[in-house]
Design a protein around this nucleic acid. Structure first.
Lengths: 334, 334
DNA sequence: ATGAAAGCGCTAACAA
DNA sequence: TTGTTAGCGCTTTCAT
């Protein structure tokens, strides 16, 4: 910038003004403007991000923090977020906590250090029975930087969130299994202590109750340790199959789990659609085996809504409080 | 920082020195150090990233640019990258180009604007027959910021890369199909003009040639348009099945494609393992149906190697030129 | 319509 | 051992 000014024999202020598009406001002569603009192009001028960020409070960066990015869920949400963020001239800084609380804390620290203008996050949640502290998450509500939660929320914390209607989704799916003739419907889930999972279980129970079915403890499979999921699922399936009321329907709360389940049942000689039906959260229709009910969550829309909410709260400086947006799921029948 | 200095009645320099850990070097009195450190904690001092970046050339941020993050491939690479980067005190800035050249250009611009210390990327490649320019990629070699390519490279461009041994992987897999009794082996791939895909095809052909099999054009399925993959694959499969030499083995170059293929074959009444075998690039063993050969690429290792290469070239200021690291694939038999 | 000058928060050479 | 000073590149207020 100095170079431009010097070479043109004018002051740096003028150059700055023009380059920022404030020329009109200051009624700078069109010739000068053109000279500056041309020179800028000639010298291939790129404004310095840091100098700018040092003066202004804004960085134009939104931090996005997810447990990982390789579940279809996350990646579709990211797509929605990107769409909105890029359209609003924000840049995304994406980090993953790898389901690890310490890493999550570190990442939050980094994002703060980098003075992001806002944060979008799917925070980590503990498995049932783990002792766990949400202090680092709770602190966010006092922080200087607006945050929007996705997929889950912390009851009582004044931070807005975008979630799906888990209870209704699970309810509808379970009902469909019942309507299609399943008599013993099992519930298969990671036993995570988080709003979304609790709500899904509630939907499952409501559907059974409404149909006059009893809810058998033996049909509820809740997996407790991430590392042992594969193994635990296998033994759970064995006892499900050995039980008197062998399930002919499964409500599965996550996509990955449903594939594992099919695989294991296959090894036990039971074939999807012939011997049992599955309804699962998460859908990727073109690649799914036939015979699955999918509770499709509008992932991309969730990302978009969350990003919009965040952008609004940054720009209007409105504090959305604990506002919650609930997006609808859709049931895909096989 | 000023506050600390003022409240303690000492100069800002001293504070800066101490806070940066250069105290010893300047033999600052331990008491002063302690006073400063305590005060810093008391005031909850956080250094300003931008002020720092403005002075020094380094930002501590590495830009990572991928076509997307939802293929298992990408996400595992990301994991490897994160491991190394975090260990070396770098932060990762992850962007996705969504298989879109314009977006890729924008992202590169953003990363440059943000003065990242280095970049890791899986760049976009065109489908066969598309007209495409790599100018924006080629320009990177003159840029100020070191770059390492992953999974693919541009021949002749002096930029280091980390790739897998695609030719050998495809060769071994095809051989295994042959050895296990397949007589007609089809090749199924996205028809992308990129080193890795070319090499896989070469491996397929070498295995067939070596076994004295002829390579029939009818057995080569190359899909040309991303949007039409599902549709095109279906019609291709139909004609494969209608042909005289109905394939009983498939070499598939990508993970996603292999699932689509199985699905389509299933709908045509052909069952994996009973009627045909598949060997595919990409492995996620626990979720795979049985009866697949998987060419497992050491994704995570690739990410790590690439990140290390980059860190080295940043810190040692050695220019690795066009150095290429080739990591070995492993064949998983069903 | 343009310029001078102060300052964003921190670093680093030099002086004391 | 500590302080002075001059920037890093840009924005912004106030003069002119």
């Amino acid at each position: 910038m100095r170079e431009i000014a010097d070479q043109l024999g004018i002051s740096r202020t003028t150059v700055s003004l023009i380059l920022k598009g404030n020329a009109a406001q200051y009624r700078i002569s069109p010739q000068t403007q053109k000279r500056v603009l041309d020179k800028a192009k000639e010298l291939n001028f790129r404004p310095n991000f840091f100098a700018k960020a040092l003066n202004k409070a804004k960085t134009g960066v939104i931090g996005v923090l997810f447990p990982n990015v390789f579940e279809t869920f996350m990646s579709k949400v990211v797509k929605g977020i990107e769409d909105v963020l890029y359209a609003n001239d924000y840049t995304m800084m994406l980090c993953t906590s790898r389901f690890n609380r310490e890493q999550e804390i570190k990442n939050i620290g980094q994002l703060n250090y980098r003075s992001v203008d806002g944060m979008l996050m799917v925070f980590n949640a503990p498995f049932h029975g783990e002792k766990y502290s949400y202090k680092h998450i709770e602190r966010l509500s006092q922080g200087p930087c607006p945050v929007v939660f996705i997929d889950r929320y912390l009851p009582g914390l004044p931070i807005p969130s975008v979630v799906q209607d888990d209870e209704a989704g699970a309810y509808n799916a379970t009902r469909s299994l019942i309507d299609s003739g399943c008599t013993n419907i099992a519930y298969v889930s990671l036993h995570i202590d988080i709003s979304s999972i609790h709500d899904r279980f509630a939907g499952y129970k409501r559907a059974l109750a409404e149909a006059g079915r009893e809810i058998s403890r033996n049909h509820v499979v809740t997996l407790n340790k991430r590392e042992r999921v594969a193994h635990d699922l296998e033994s759970a399936v064995r006892s499900l199959l050995a039980s008197e009321k062998r399930p002919d329907g499964f409500l599965v709360t996550t996509n990955g789990l449903s594939f594992r389940l099919i695989r294991i049942l296959e090894l036990q000689g039971r074939t999807l659609n012939r011997d049992y039906k599955i309804a699962k959260f998460g859908a990727d229709p073109p690649d799914n085996p036939s015979g699955m009910y999918c509770i499709e969550q509008p992932h991309t829309e969730m990302g978009m809504r969350a990003a919009r909410l965040l952008c609004d709260s940054i720009e209007n400086r409105t504090s959305p409080g604990a506002q919650q947006i609930i997006v609808k799921t859709a049931l895909h029948k096989p």
